[in-house]
Amino acid sequence: MDVFAEYLAKVDDPLQKERLENVFAWVQEAFPNLGTKMAWNQPMFTDHDTFILAFSSAKAHMSVAPEAAAMQHFSSRIEQAGYTQTAQLFRIPWKMPVDYELLQDLIAFNIEDKADCTTFWRK
């Protein structure tokens, strides 16, 4: 996870940094075939050079960005988890637990849905 080291070094709050590290490690353990990269100052996970998921941090939350198609597919589950959302991302407040089952299903959806995708983003 060296590719994310510089990003994580800039996270001032040690608890937020630890949560990000834990989530990134979980993604890599659950989906060992995913690649990692930094783009647009965001830690990203990719599959066959296509975007699967990105993260970013803010004062009150961690943002998870899986692209609009996945957001639409999982909108009700994101709401049920208690997270706020936009068309492109949802926010996990630092004080709320991470719904790893939701993340697992969302990542698996993107991998399957983009299996034949030849571009970074969906078209």
Rank of each mutant, 00 (worst) to 15 (best):
W94T: 07
K10P: 03
A60S: 13
I78G: 03
Y83E: 01
Y100P: 01
M1G: 11
F45E: 06
D116G: 07
L102H: 00
E29R: 14
E6P: 13
Q16S: 08
K95N: 15
Q28M: 11
P93F: 05
M71Q: 00
F51W: 01
H48I: 06
W40S: 08
K37P: 04
F45G: 05
R19T: 10
Q85G: 08
A30L: 00
S76G: 05
V3R: 11
K114E: 05
I111A: 02
N22E: 15
L20T: 00
I92A: 02
P66R: 14
Q28H: 14
E112M: 06
V64C: 00
R122Q: 10
F24H: 04
A5D: 13
K17T: 14
P97L: 11
T36I: 04
Q72V: 08
Q104W: 11
I52L: 12
V23W: 04
E112S: 03
M1T: 05
F31S: 03
V11N: 02
M1E: 07
A39E: 09
I52Q: 09
A108C: 05
A58N: 02
H73P: 06
A108D: 11
T36Y: 00
N41E: 15
S63N: 09
R122A: 14
L89K: 15
Q72W: 03
A30G: 00
M96V: 03
V3S: 05
V3Q: 10
A58S: 14
R77A: 13
D113K: 11
F120A: 07
K10T: 08
A108K: 05
M96I: 04
S63P: 12
Q80A: 14
F24C: 01
L103Y: 00
R77E: 02
L103V: 00
T118Y: 01
T84L: 08
